[in-house]
Computed example of a mutant assay.
Amino acid sequence: MAVLVLGLVLFLGVHSTRIVAEDWRSRMVGRLGENGWKGLYTGVSLAGFALLVWGYGLARQQPVALWAPPRGMNHLAALLMLPSFVLLVAAYVPRNGIRARLHHPMVLGVKLWALAHLLANGNLADVVLFGAFLAWAVLDFRSLRRRDRARQTVFAAGTTAGTATAVLVGAALYAVFVTWAHARLFGVSPLGF
């Protein structure tokens, strides 16, 4: 569990600098330059991600059950993942209505992903991993919205084509993930087959 926690501290810690240490981040960018900061940020992120994946795998080998999710929670989680994938894709598709309306769809997608996985899993490692991501996403979304208001950020209007692209690509990725990739990568079929 220590490796998982260390990975989460590094990964979510570096992703939280704008939430808790905006002034420090600005000083670091000034000292290292934009590319130097991005290099440090990327290095710490990758190290944290590798540690959290490794730590989660280790923790799954000796599971500590906290509760047994009620029947059907895996199906509810699978259903919630469809909009999560659409939200993640909407963060990257230019001029889509989802981003125009919600402003930060990736963070909302992470919230939904974490919540879905908390509903379907009752082991300690799951609660630590998905609970940490859910807490981070809630704080990050709040911070982003506050920053948007302070800067009076205006988001580009969405188009039908951009919105349709985000929905269709997100749904296609979801279909691949739920029917094949999740079981292949994590050894668990979200639909139970």
Score class of each variant (00 low, 15 high):
M1D: 08
A2E: 12
L6I: 14
G7T: 13
V9M: 09
V9R: 06
L10Y: 04
F11Q: 01
G13W: 10
G13M: 07
V14A: 08
V14S: 04
S16T: 00
T17S: 03
R18D: 10
V20Q: 08
R25S: 00
R25T: 06
S26A: 15
E34I: 13
G39W: 07
T42R: 15
V44T: 05
L52V: 01
L52Q: 04
W54T: 06
G57D: 10
A59C: 05
P63K: 01
W67Q: 00
W67N: 03
A68P: 06
P70L: 14
M73S: 14
N74M: 15
A77V: 09
A78T: 03
A78Q: 07
L80F: 02
L88K: 03
V89I: 09
A91C: 03
P94N: 12
P94S: 15
P94T: 12
R95I: 03
R95Y: 09
G97W: 02
I98P: 02
R101C: 13
H103E: 07
L108P: 09
L108T: 12
G109T: 07
W113K: 06
W113N: 07
A114R: 03
H117K: 05
A120E: 00
G122Q: 04
N123D: 11
N123G: 10
L124S: 09
A125F: 01
L134A: 07
L144P: 02
R145K: 13
R146D: 12
R146H: 14
R147H: 12
R151G: 08
A156H: 10
T159R: 11
T159F: 08
A161E: 10
A166V: 10
L168F: 11
V169F: 02
A172P: 05
A175P: 00
A175Y: 04
V176W: 13
V176D: 06
H182S: 01
A183Q: 12
A183M: 13
R184M: 13
R184I: 05
L185P: 06
G187Y: 06
V188M: 08
S189Q: 12
S189Y: 02
P190W: 02
P190L: 00
G192E: 11
